[in-house]
Amino acid sequence: MINIILTSGFWIVLIIFFVKNPEKVEKWIGILSRFLGFICKKYEYFSIKHEVQGKINSFVANLEENTVAKFSRVIIKWTASKDEEDIEFNDLETVILMRDNKHVNKNFVHAAYFYTSKVFLSKAKKHLPVNLKTSLDLFTTDKLLKKESKGAVDQFEKDFFIKEMDSSAEIKNYIKKYINIDRLGIYFPVFIQELNFLGKKVFLEDNSREVTEEINQLIDFLETRANREVGELVPETFAGKFTKCSIKVVASKTSRLFNQVDEQKERILKAIKNGCENIYIMGDAEDESRNFVDRVIKDLIMDKIKISIEKRVVFDSEIYTHDGKRKKVKTYFIHINNPLAIDNIRIK
């Protein structure tokens, strides 16, 4: 009887996992079916399609766990794979070449770079100059590969990443900044998210130059935050023309020691009143700090302040301690959205 319960419990857990993580399941079906492709060429199409599709979509699903942004998934569509197929090759359509399963890394690098360059953040990137766009594509692809296909990282870094960085000091400079921002863990949950919000705004006049200038300032703001030593005072609010956000540490040792819930609540309220669309609360993920942050947020909600809590997650970060050394920590991160500040139609 116990055996039956345990066995059925296992299957239920497995089914729940399948339903909740279709991308991961697809990725593993693709990987596991690779050997069928070696036996019968027909299965190679199946395994390449599902492995590439599953890995990219799994990365996107993972990204959405830390951001409120919704990113497009991909479908790999084969051209001319059937004998009788009437091949369609429409205007402006691009077909990328996939090789057999011996080149699994090359296939994935080519498809992943196509995805980050042509699909990922496509609306926001419309406003950006080439080097800024390329730096984003390179860094994001590198992150994608490190998460989903470690075996392909070397090939990508050797053939794409290093070559492009060496060809442009500007790209190299951007990448250095992203590395710092990413160390704090806010490349995707803050930077890419803000770019995504920016991409949703409708501009009635062409202002690419101003948008670029503002993104450069946002990058500098985030890098300064990332390079901050614990306790160091650096600007916590970014107030641009198109983007207004704030990153706050509310559970400092002093705040917790003197139970300054009201003071911290006031700091968040000030950012809301000043029109910040997004307020990101960051702090240590250990219980005492986390409970303090939760109390501040709970008080804000009880005061009927019109905000919505979009995300509440824990992620890995690297911070600088007082003596300038790097330390790996778990960060508690809350994304508060201020619906009254959202203005998606801009004249300029």
Binding site: E44, I48, W78, M98
Partner: peptide
Amino acid sequence: KSTINTIHE
């Protein structure tokens, strides 16, 4: 969902 068109060698 966005489509990536591919062709096998």
